[in-house]
Design a protein around this nucleic acid. Structure first.
Length: 493
RNA sequence: GGUCACGUGGCCGAGGGGCUAGGCACCGGUCUGCAAAACCGAUUACAGCGGUUCGAAUCCGCUCGUGACCUCCA
């Protein structure tokens, strides 16, 4: 086992801090999952992959990790004229389907997309709709503690009162007075004591389909309480890591902090982590701007901004080539650069098994190993990690050309490091290999046959024929590499 | 308007006071019948203007530009 030297950037302190679990060897981790009222898009892929990487690394470090990622299927407020209406309910009426049917449909497609991206399943994936009781119970606790009030069947969190004894805004760096001055007119604003107050329980309007019974009204839980209720239920009153997109920092996470503290009497989260956004032409990709590319569109190329399809692994690699706290701008150029880079990486890994062992190692494997761990330990710096991996690939390619050398032990060490970093931690997989498994043998035999014929043609100086065989195979998606003592071929996408 | 980020070579992206990633593209070379692949090499940077410093892409200030949050969002 590797000694834990992981440092992560904590939004609370605005600093990188050494990661030390509250109760080792256990680690509790909560990440805000998707709202399932639409297809998952590129933006959903980023937190999923970022925290998948963290999950994988923590497990690699031998922690017993419980990773909770919720499904929001209760819906949030609209921002258009349909004020107060539940988003899922709205779509349901339009399509004449049950709200839960829609939630289920999009949950399924989210799961499918995550699987394609090789994102591991979380330990627990709680649904907000399945935890209404817990949310009501937490709201009661907050009422009892005196940090909330009932108003016309709804319950609101009393931000002003809370902030007298607590630091409301400590996560986002926001000043309460500004929030009060700048809050938009939301439905039910006149029921609030204060503009900055937010709902814990909302009385349902007549058009509302999704509703549950409570002592206050027929209604639905407020838009932040689910995460507080479910994280407390599954990870306890104190846990290690809470993650999510940067756009959730305020108000969502700020409200979560306030609610949980009001209910439980203490701060619950030790490390807050936020991934940055994916932009498209420099602008945030989001539902409300309608400039998002769904993952299905990505994988099939069916979007007007896409020159071609990009495979799930290319998307994963593209995301990992930027640091999770930096914005990442989408473009075809960047995607196809990632595609080629990934191919180079994967072919390099294969080349490792072709190297002829030498007496000595000309490449400093130990320092390579160290640099890789330093990169991932430094707040999951995957771009630097990947840069180091490419240095390793270059050494391997050079060795294959006879310009570097590896011993038998050195080769297996390199293989271990690649297995660990590329496949186990970065979670990449070689798509070409898995695709061709089915017809592996016959395909192999055919290729051998054709390429041997090509060698014969070359020996007979029949270059017209040999070039024809090569060119036709290239058209069919194979890459032919001539070697001194024969040939190699790859299936390209 | 308020708050907070950011501006790096043709493109993407790290780094973060002197050592100056990596990928993709382009150019030259080796190899090849020719290619491809691989390897070697070259070129192109830190928005602008000031300041601090022996030294600034890196710190500070200002200007310009871009973005995020303040309202559902990953």
């Amino acid at each position: 086992m590797e000694t834990n030297n992981l440092h992560i950037y904590n939004t609370l302190s605005r600093k990188k801090q050494k990661f030390e679990p509250i109760k080792p060897p256990f680690v509790g981790m909560y990440v805000c999952g998707p709202t399932v009222y639409g297809d998952s898009h590129l933006g959903h892929a980023r937190p999923a992959i970022t925290f998948d990487l963290l999950f994988r690394y923590l497990k690699y470090l031998d922690y017993q990790v419980r990773y909770v990622r919720n499904i929001t299927d209760v819906g949030h407020l609209e921002n258009d004229a349909d004020e107060g209406e539940d988003k899922i309910a709205k779509k349901a009426r339009l399509e004449q389907l049950e709200p839960m049917e829609i939630a289920q449909q999009y949950t399924n497609s989210y799961h499918h997309n995550m699987q394609q991206l090789n994102v591991l399943e979380p330990s627990i994936e709680p649904h907000a709709s399945g935890h209404i009781l817990e949310q009501i119970a937490m709201t009661e606790k907050i009422l009892e503690a005196g940090f909330a009030y009932e108003s016309n069947g709804s319950v609101y969190f009393d931000v002003a009162k809370y902030s007298k004894t607590n630091d409301y805004g400590k996560l986002s760096g926001r000043v309460l007075e500004d929030s009060i001055a700048n809050t938009r007119q939301l439905d039910g604003q006149n029921e609030k004591h204060n503009n900055a107050d937010f709902a814990l329980w909302k009385k349902a309007m007549p058009e509302h389909i999704m509703r549950w019974h409570s002592q206050w009204s027929e209604g639905f839980p407020g838009w932040h309480i689910e995460c507080s209720a479910m994280s407390t239920k599954y990870l306890g009153e104190e846990f290690d890591i809470h993650g999510g997109g940067l756009d959730l920092m305020f108000p969502h996470h700020e409200c979560e902090i306030a609610q949980t503290k009001a209910a439980n009497g203490k701060d619950s989260v030790k490390y807050w982590m936020h991934n940055n956004m994916i932009t498209i032409d420099g602008q945030k990709m989001s539902k409300s701007l309608s400039n998002f590319i769904t993952l299905d569109q990505m994988f099939t190329g069916s979007h007007k901004l896409l020159d071609k399809a990009y495979s799930p692994q290319v998307v994963r690699f593209f995301i990992l080539q930027a640091h999770y706290r930096s914005p990442l701008d989408f473009s075809n150029k960047a995607l196809s650069a990632a595609e080629k880079g990934l191919e180079r990486l994967m072919i390099g890994v294969k080349t490792l098994s072709k190297i002829k062992p030498s007496e000595t190692n000309s490449f400093d494997i130990e320092s390579f190993r160290k640099k890789c761990f330093e990169a991932i330990d430094d707040d999951l710096n995957t771009p630097v990690l990947i840069a180091h991996l490419f240095d390793g690939i270059r050494a391997i390619n050079s060795a294959n050309d006879g310009k570097e050398s590896f011993t038998t032990a050195g080769i297996s060490e390199m293989r271990n490091l690649f297995d660990t970093f590329i496949f186990e931690l970065l979670g990449l997989k070689n798509e070409n290999e898995t695709n061709s498994k089915l017809d592996d043998n016959s395909e192999n035999n055919l290729m051998e046959l054709l390429l041997n014929m090509r060698i014969e043609a070359k020996q007979n100086k029949n270059f017209a024929l040999s070039d024809k065989i090569r060119d036709e195979l290239v058209k069919l998606g194979y890459q032919i590499k001539d070697k001194k003592d024969g040939f190699e071929w790859e299936k390209s996408n």
